[in-house]
Simulated assay, not measured.
Amino acid sequence: MKRNSLSNSRRTFIAQSTMASLSLGFGGSLVGSTLLSSCSSSSDSKAKPTIITGFSQKPLPYDYSALEPSIDAMTMEIHYTKHAAAYANNLKEAAAEEGVDMENPLEEVMASISKYSTKMRNNGGGHYNHELFWSIMTPNGGGEPSGSLAEAINNEFGSFSSFVEKFEDAAKTRFGSGWAWLVLDGGTLKVGSTPNQDNPLMDISDLKGQPLLGIDVWEHAYYLHYQNERPRYISSWWNVVNWAAVQERFDAFSV
């Protein structure tokens, strides 16, 4: 089925999944690594954006050196062209082997990952996580969120600084490889981490919710520049966070 001829049922599914804030979401068109569109109906002229993730790796919207000094160019290039590209390629192989329709959102697979192979879990998670990762970073990023996201963070964690401390603790203490997350779960913001390439959309994950923000704490994400100093990488990473993209995700998945 071609993308420009989606069936009515699929359009309905996508719209309903967004409005209901289900465990579905495509990475973000803000960086060209996702499909971001607006769903509208005659009864809702201000419908929320739909965020869904495809099975193909999308081009970065910035140069490999654009996030320096927080993330150096060589790390970015190797991370994107080698590690992330391998996840995307292996995901397509797994999808073909296991009869997954790659025209549908990858989030559908994540939500029922326990039904699939380890290959699908590792590479599907790796692809989803990285597509989101690229999308929530930007040159000249950083600062603090504003508006409804800032209000929600303050309400849940007490202050932005308290949120940062909690998030950094989750990232620093993730044993081995994995990710730290800010998620929205039924209207509640939560911070936590997942091992390896797992993510909070997976039905096997202890931390569940819609990912709004995620940091990769695998050593390949920082070791060339920071060596064993993971905490220094984490604290520097805030300088490239794209809070506008995180706000888009918050708006899309808010009940």
Rank of each mutant, 00 (worst) to 15 (best):
N89G: 03
G142A: 12
T75M: 05
G178H: 03
M110R: 13
G187L: 04
S42D: 13
G209V: 13
G192T: 03
G143H: 02
S146R: 04
N104V: 02
D203C: 01
T75C: 12
E97T: 14
G124H: 10
Y128F: 03
Y233F: 10
G178Q: 11
E98R: 10
E219R: 05
N122E: 14
P105W: 01
S43G: 03
D198N: 13
G125A: 00
A20V: 07
S5I: 03
A86W: 03
P59N: 00
F157M: 03
L184R: 11
N4L: 01
D203P: 04
P211S: 12
T12M: 13
A221G: 07
G186R: 12
F157T: 08
L149V: 11
E93F: 07
F167K: 08
G142D: 04
K48R: 14
P195M: 05
P61E: 14
F250D: 01
R11Y: 13
I71A: 08
Y62V: 01
S40V: 00
G143S: 03
S5M: 05
V217I: 07
R232W: 09
G54L: 15
R3V: 09
W238H: 03
L224W: 09
L189S: 00
Y222G: 02
T188I: 15
K119C: 06
W238P: 02
T18S: 01
A66Q: 04
L212E: 10
M19N: 11
T138W: 06
N155E: 12
G192E: 08
A111I: 10
S161E: 04
L24D: 06
S148V: 11
V191D: 09
D198M: 10
S23N: 10
A244F: 06
D185P: 12
N122P: 00
S236P: 03
S148K: 13
S37L: 12
T18K: 09
L213P: 07
A88F: 06
G126V: 02
Y128D: 10
M19G: 06
A170N: 01
S148Y: 12
T173R: 00
A85E: 09
G178V: 06
S135R: 04
P49Q: 07
A73L: 00
Y233S: 06
V217T: 05
G125T: 06
D101K: 05
L201I: 09
A15T: 09
M102L: 15
T53D: 14
G141T: 00
G142M: 01
E168M: 06
N154E: 10
G142L: 09
S42P: 14
S146W: 12
